[in-house]
Every structure is written in C-alpha cells, then in structure tokens.
Design a protein around this nucleic acid. Structure first.
Lengths: 148, 148
DNA sequence: CCTTGAGTTGAAGTGCGCTTCAACTTGCAG
DNA sequence: CTGCAAGTTGAAGCGCACTTCAACTCAAGG
C-alpha cells in the first residue's frame, strides 16, 4: 500500500474527493493511475495539499498557489529545501497579513467606535492622510476583500 | 449638502455604486430618496460601510455582518457606545484570526518545510494529536478556507 | 428649454472554488 | 463469480459578492 486511493487521500488531507479532482484539473496536485484508470496518490502529495490549505487561509487564490507550486521541481520529489524556500515566501505573506490585522485591531475601537466627527483625521478611514488633493471629505481606504 | 448622492458616497467610501445598491438590497445600509427617487446617504452611513469593509477583511460574510449591524438601534443614529460595543466583538474575532495566523506562521517553516517523515507528530498537519483513534496516518486539520 | 452626466430598475452575467448528478467502470470481500 | 462500495467522466449547478446591461428618468449648468 505505497499509494493512496482518492478516498483515503481525501480522509487524510481533509479535502473532499471532488475538490481533489478539481485541484488536479487545475494543475495543483498530481496522481498516477492504476491499470483501471483510478487515481493513486503518493504520500508526498499530502504536503502539497497542506500547503494549498494553508495558503488559502492566508487568502491566496488557487491561481497564485499554482504559480508558487510551479516552482517546485517537476522531475523529483521536492526536498526539504524546496519546501523551505516556498514556505519562507508565504511566511512573509503571513507576516504582512498579520500586521494588517493588528493595525485593524488597534484602530478598530479607536475609530469605528469613536463617534469622531473629524473623519479625515482618522487612521482607519484615511490612513496616511491620502486623498487630501481629491477634495474634502474622508475616504475609506481599506483594500477590497478580494485581497483578504 | 446634508446628504450624499450615490456617486459621492461611493467616492467617499471607496465602494462602487453597484455594490452600495447591493448592500442596500441586502439590508446592510440605508438611504433616503429624493422626490425623483434618487438615493441620498447620510454621512453616518459611511461608518456602516467602514464597518462592513473591515469585517470583510477579517473574513466575515455579509450575512454575519448584517446580523451584527442589526444590533444597532433602528430609530436613532448609533452612538459612540453602540459602535464601541460592536467593535469590541469584532476585536475579539480579529484577535482569534491573528493568533490563528501566528500559529500558522510559527509552524509553517517547521512543518511544511521540514520534510519530516513522522507526519503524525507534526503540529500543523495534526495539531493536538487528534484522530489517533481513526486509524493510522496523519490528517491535515486546517479549517476549510470558508472560515477564512 | 435642452443637453448631458448621473441615477434608477430588474434581470442576467461573472469569477472563484467547489459540489452534484447521471451514467458508467473497478476492485475487492465473501 | 458475484455483489456492492468506491471510483471515473463531463456537464451542470451553487453560493457569495458583486458587476454589467438595457432601457429608462432625473437634475442641474449654459
């Protein structure tokens, strides 16, 4: 039992078989086939799925994840160093995300809750005093949630 | 110029007019109408939109946001205390989200990058040694990104 | 007045990340 | 060898959060 069936792989990875097939269609994971055309997964693929789920938690799209995974070697099983390189990149993204949320947390009560009337002095609504040249009035400067 | 047209409101809030109409249909924001049936927004609505965008950054659905906003008083402009109460709740959610990401960050290189073979001892893949009774083998225990 | 940019509606469309379905095939336990 | 759970496919569907479109009306400056 060197490889896993899609059912076992799904149980191990916590990802539904339909999602795994979807990931494969999208080029995020790989499988081999039995003589009868059934998928078989190597255990190392679990690492890919783990990476995918973690990246999704950080708010990364499958497109970006595919791009990242594409940097892993194609012809050999990725080494620890290969994964470390990728992980390091995502660690940076995580850090960025974390500090965004910390900023949000620190400013939330102070701004939303403040009832202040001078909105254009507010860090959350208008961080960095931008838009000063686009006429008066405060603007909300959060990114669209797409980048969440 | 007590109230804002949808165009001005969109510019101030950083949210497209189409999205504002959508939010209104969904019961997240309110507007009054002119005699000619055009929307006019009170400036206090900006606070609602700010709240919505912040909550979205934290990964909250519009459904949940609507539920939260429903706790604001209907018949009067929300006071600072009203907003503070709401903000405090979200601050907790933010804190949770932040610590999840910090855990992710701290474990990422150590686990994904480690190349370790004893997957079932890995914090990220199997935090808290759960599933020990569901047969051998590691499982990835991240939440689905829906909760992101 | 008249033009023109801004606003209105309902219905349909979009993109992402999957899930569901129907019709069919495999693989293993008894 | 059979029965049945588990696997296969392509196509369609779904939920969320919007956006786009067409056809129409409003508001305000010249």
């Amino acid at each position: 039992m060197e490889t896993l069936t899609i059912g076992d792989f799904a149980a191990r990875s916590g990802v539904a078989p339909s999602a795994l097939r979807y990931y494969e269609r999208e080029g995020l994971i790989r499988s081999t086939r039995t003589s009868g055309n059934q998928r078989r997964y190597e255990r190392t693929e679990l690492r890919r799925v783990a990476f995918i789920r973690i990246a999704q938690q950080v708010g990364v799209t499958l497109d970006e994840i595919r791009a990242a995974l594409a940097e892993l070697p194609e012809n050999r099983t990725p080494t620890r160093a290969d994964w470390a390189r990728l992980s390091d990149r995502w660690r940076h993204r995580l850090e960025e995300k974390i500090s965004l949320m910390q900023r949000l947390r620190d400013d939330l009560s102070g701004c939303i809750g403040c009832g202040c009337l001078s909105l254009n002095r507010c860090k959350l609504i208008n961080p960095g005093d931008q838009f000063a040249d686009e006429g008066p009035g405060a603007r909300i400067l959060l990114n669209p949630p797409a980048s969440s």
